[in-house]
Design a protein around this nucleic acid. Sequence first.
DNA 1: TCGCTTGCCGAACGAGCGTTCGGTAGAATA
DNA 2: TATTCTACCGAACGCTCGTTCGGCAAGCGA
Lengths: 234, 234
Amino acid sequence: MPKSELRTIVPIVRSSLGERPTLDPQGGSTSLRMDTALHPIDLDDRSRMSDIILESAKLFAVKGYDGTSIRDIARAVGVAQASLYHFFADKREIHSTVVTISVERLLWLIRERLGACTTSSERVEAFAQAHAQHISENAPLYFASALGYNELADPVVKARVQRMRDSYEEILRGIIRDGIESGEFRELDVKLGARAIISCLNWMARWWRADGPDSAETIATEYVRLIIRGFRPE
Amino acid sequence: MPKSELRTIVPIVRSSLGERPTLDPQGGSTSLRMDTALHPIDLDDRSRMSDIILESAKLFAVKGYDGTSIRDIARAVGVAQASLYHFFADKREIHSTVVTISVERLLWLIRERLGACTTSSERVEAFAQAHAQHISENAPLYFASALGYNELADPVVKARVQRMRDSYEEILRGIIRDGIESGEFRELDVKLGARAIISCLNWMARWWRADGPDSAETIATEYVRLIIRGFRPE
DNA sequence: TCGCTTGCCGAACGAGCGTTCGGTAGAATA
DNA sequence: TATTCTACCGAACGCTCGTTCGGCAAGCGA
């Protein structure tokens, strides 16, 4: 089961390169499955494929896409270069998979966290904390995705990741809109408010490190509490 | 004079690679001149050197450091590859110069803009507007610097740019501290407040484009007005 | 007029890149 | 038992990269 889930996403990423996914009879339903993010991909099994993805993510996070060579990845995983091509079509597919899994996880985590919240303020805070949890739990994956997602060469993969980022942003906008409607927030520019919070969260990829004094969750919460003060009426 | 100013900064950047700057007798005084940013570098003369810097900035901004080749730059400028090495020691020096000039300009612009302001709120707004003005006036330079400044290979250049970014951040922190002292702002976490504003400004490099509906200055002002609401007392 | 510097170029260098090919050992399937 | 498939590898291919070298023409101070 864990391994089969991992084996589901790669053909989907690959399908955007012109190939059809081999595990599912229909392309349409698989991409729907992607966007709705019903489950996170398991990378904790000790399969080769997980290893490749995780080691690649570490390298991409530190050295960037261009700065990381196939030889680097092979050395980190402990296999020959040629072996990587047994699991992935090319280097771009490895990178696309890393980025896609990261965004998929983030979206899944946010949706799961939002279920337990009632007020709009709580929901904004939960949104930020889910983002922070993703940063701290999947640091290499997240940094690789955040720093390198505009290096995505394939336009189809890029479009799908963009679509997922759009729905990520739309979730926050919806929360703020609800808050305005219920009177919990004043009449404010929804786009601007959402973007301010997301900017703070995203910029953390540039300076936050796990060995620093504050946890990602703490910082995210404080950001939200500061900005949400500007959301309050009067 | 314009050209000579441009010819000042390059030896300074170069000096960090182990060479001594040739235009100034003392290394210490030149690096002091850099950090205090007494004047912006003129890139509007039609010299070869300005051309190389500006065309490189455009390419770095779009394709990144690794994605841009010496051949790309030479083609954009309209010279042979070998000619670039007449003005710069290597590719890294071109990139370092682009990034350094951008940060230098930003700092200079902020210091100039802050002179005309009185209240702390005005000063925070002026800070953000100076940043926005830099983005819109020097878009390629800024994007190249913002997206690629952690690709700086040379540790000495990286340290100097970091130092300039630190003093950039310290300016904003000082403004906020003054505002708290005078009672204009409540007792808030200065580091966090400054970081929130800077995050919004920096993240603009990822999504703002000159052909969009809003000017960079407008967006920056609205960000600040939103966040500053959370700075106000009670 | 001589010699030096500046600006510039064509051609080539070695290194590293992503990728491919032919093949093997072993497990799974028939 | 015969066949197929999975996981994996060593060695090489063609290509692009940053950089270097030797040389040329124009300008300029001596």
